[in-house]
Design a protein around this nucleic acid. Structure first.
Length: 619
DNA sequence: TCACAGTCTGGAATGCAAAT
DNA sequence: ATTTGCATTCCAGACTGTGA
């Protein structure tokens, strides 16, 4: 700003500049105070500070108010432009528009997830977001967390059991095993007996290489039986080719072999536990609008492509914030237990004579409350109306500028004030940075729709698990009912780091066990799921600005041509599967000593990092 | 993470000057 | 004399930095 040294800028805060902007417009301290919902003395103090900073009286007493100095006149327009630019800069990020998006999604998935999750969603994605690209990355469970943290992948698909800790996850469906063999297989005309099952020659998938024992063998062992596993393969798709061309059979995930004409599928005579397939993503993309859209679209696309969820508990759902029914607690019954300190997290019943524990923002960029509304202050009808951020907040009948002689506010005004105050922002006690001050009418409107309890809790800072932190009191409340049974954390030994295949599935017991923290939720009600999803969406509002941080990344993508994911590629599931199958089949190495000597999956590094960039460039 | 002290902020009350 | 508007002081509460 001309005439002010950089050091002096530190003495200026945004509030002062906003006050100056209105002062230069009104030429009147009292009217400025009314417009800013300040008291006149406060504006007077602001003006004194501004005079000190600028070294100029700025406004001089004159008839019917103040007259601007030359310096003040010079400041008016540059200041207005600067504030408008700042307002645009801190305004919430525009909502994600898939039709105009040009994102490149990077998804880590193995062949199973490609076939069961991505393919069903692809056709719709080409229609909804034709400018986006999809890169399917080679799945490496040990690297998922790191890749997600670095932003190298946007999503990953993994069995819920054994998925890396520290990532958000959403179970897409529950898979089960069936017995599959070639069409016309003489032993699969009907469901085999357990003895017949054991007599068959089996294939298993061993993602880490060369395993010949899987969860089916464990189930048989419990019954004192064994089976003959004669082939171990790294991929399901190769397995399907093997089954179609030999008399070998395999326990296969049901979704993979459904409607495959070359295979005969029957129920297995042994009960083998299934697994949950989960979608994983990192906190860095949790609140990003584009990533949210992708996740929800995959869930929705999967719903169209999947035969249907196997159980309600695992059925993918889209957030339904508009219909959320959250237990409401009247805001007027809550009162901060302590009125001193940064964050009054403890609440106590309010004294009837005390104002509701609602925080008011008196300055457009301030979180402070008018004294009359602060906890512990008695409310009198002749007190000044509560103040609110920006002009989007409800305005109350402004008392006379001369408070000493103003008329009293009617009781109805008082009650309406309380009602409107309850709809205001309770995050106010924590001073926000200038960027977070970018409140808009949209944000106010969205926030006003939030139930009272979640708003009251909303001040807690949200970290990676912030949603859970916020909802803890509500979940506690639900525990009293029948909705939630237990939420147990335990330590156990987890087997190998699986690929997309089940951790305890076929060939899944090959590596050294390792410690894992496993969360067991015996019954997680739809109501709680609603709460979590709703809170996640709500935090999007609070972190809307975070999306700005990733804007440069998206901008860089726009520098490139806009390749599009063509419909034919997305629909060509068979062609894709075959192409991938053939390549992998050719790359699969078998140790000279036979299957027993097959090494770990790291041996196939030459085939790793294969990403399928399925796109074409626009002419 | 918490407690504490210093600082900051804004409302209430009041004084003063100018205008009516 | 009354009204209007700005400035000052005091105070409570909020905020912030620091050290344990």
């Amino acid at each position: 700003m001309p005439g002010i040294a950089m050091n002096d800028l530190r003495r200026l805060d945004l509030n002062l500049l906003l006050t100056l902007d209105v002062l230069l417009s009104e030429h009147n301290v009292t009217r400025t105070a009314e417009r800013l919902n300040f008291s006149q003395p406060s504006v007077s103090v602001h003006l004194a500070k501004l005079r000190d900073v600028f070294g100029d009286p700025l406004l001089l007493p004159g008839p019917r108010g103040m007259r601007p100095t030359t310096r003040a006149d010079e400041l008016r327009e540059p200041l207005r432009q600067a504030l408008e630019a700042l307002g645009r800069a801190v305004s919430p990020a525009s909502p994600f528009s898939p039709a105009e998006a040009s994102n490149t999604w990077r998804v880590a998935a193995a062949d199973y997830a490609e076939s069961t999750v991505l393919l069903p969603a692809m056709a719709g994605m080409r229609t909804a977001a034709p400018g986006t690209r999809l890169a399917i990355m080679e799945m490496s469970p040990s690297r998922i967390a790191r890749q997600a943290e670095r932003g190298e992948i946007d999503l990953a698909f993994h069995t819920s059991d054994g998925a890396p800790e520290g990532l958000h996850r959403r179970v897409l469906f529950t898979e089960r095993y069936v017995l599959a063999g070639r069409a016309g297989h003489p032993r699969l005309k009907r469901r085999p007996t357990l003895a017949q099952f054991c007599a068959l020659e089996h294939v298993i998938v061993s993602t880490d290489g060369g395993g010949f024992r899987g969860i089916t063998d464990e189930a048989l062992a419990d019954a004192g039986l064994t089976r003959r596993v004669v082939l171990s393969v790294p991929h399901f798709l190769f397995m399907m080719q093997v089954l179609a061309s030999t008399d070998l059979v395999a326990m296969m995930p049901s979704r993979l072999v459904r409607n495959v004409s070359t295979l005969r599928v029957v129920e297995a005579p042994v009960d083998v536990p299934g697994y949950d397939l989960a979608m994983l993503w990192h906190e860095r993309s949790h609140r990003d609008a584009a990533h949210r859209w992708l996740r929800e679209f995959i869930v929705a696309g999967g719903n169209r492509g999947w035969p249907g969820p196997t159980s309600r508990a695992h059925s993918p759902r889209l957030p339904k914030p508009a219909t959320l029914q959250t237990p409401r607690v009247a805001a007027t019954s809550l009162q901060p237990a302590s009125t001193r300190g940064n964050t009054p997290l403890a609440w106590k019943p309010a004294d009837q004579t005390v104002r509701p524990a609602v925080r008011y923002a008196s300055h457009p960029l301030s979180t402070r409350a008018p004294q009359s509304s602060r906890p512990g202050h008695l409310w009198r009808p002749d007190m000044r109306a509560p103040r609110y951020r920006n002009q989007c907040a409800p305005r109350f009948p402004a008392p006379s500028s001369r408070l000493r002689s103003s008329s009293a506010t009617s009781p109805s005004d008082d009650s309406s004030m309380k009602a409107a105050c309850d709809a205001q922002d309770p995050w106010g006690s924590q001073r926000r940075s200038a960027f977070e001050q970018g409140w808009t009418a949209h944000r106010h409107q969205h926030f006003a729709q939030q139930p009272a309890v979640t708003r009251a809790l909303g001040r807690k800072r949200m970290g990676m698990h912030g949603d859970i932190d916020i909802l803890t009191p509500e979940i506690r409340g639900l525990v009293r009912g029948d909705d939630l049974n237990i939420d147990l954390r335990m330590q156990r030994l987890e087997s190998r780091e699986a690929r997309d295949q089940p951790a305890h599935g076929e060939g899944g017991r090959q590596l050294q066990p390792q410690d894992r923290t496993v969360r067991v939720v015996t019954r997680f009600s739809r109501r709680v799921v609603d709460l979590v999803e709703h809170a996640a969406q709500r935090t999007d509002i609070g972190f809307a600005l975070t999306g700005k941080l990733y804007a440069p990344m998206r901008a860089q993508e726009k520098l490139h041509p806009e390749p599009v994911l063509q419909q034919r590629h997305m629909a060509a599931d068979r062609a894709l599967c075959h192409e991938k199958f053939l390549r992998r089949a050719g790359e699969t190495q078998v140790a000279p000593g036979g299957f027993e000597g097959a090494q770990c999956i790291e041996r196939r590094k030459f085939s790793s990092h294969i990403s399928h960039e399925i796109f074409s460039c626009r002419p």
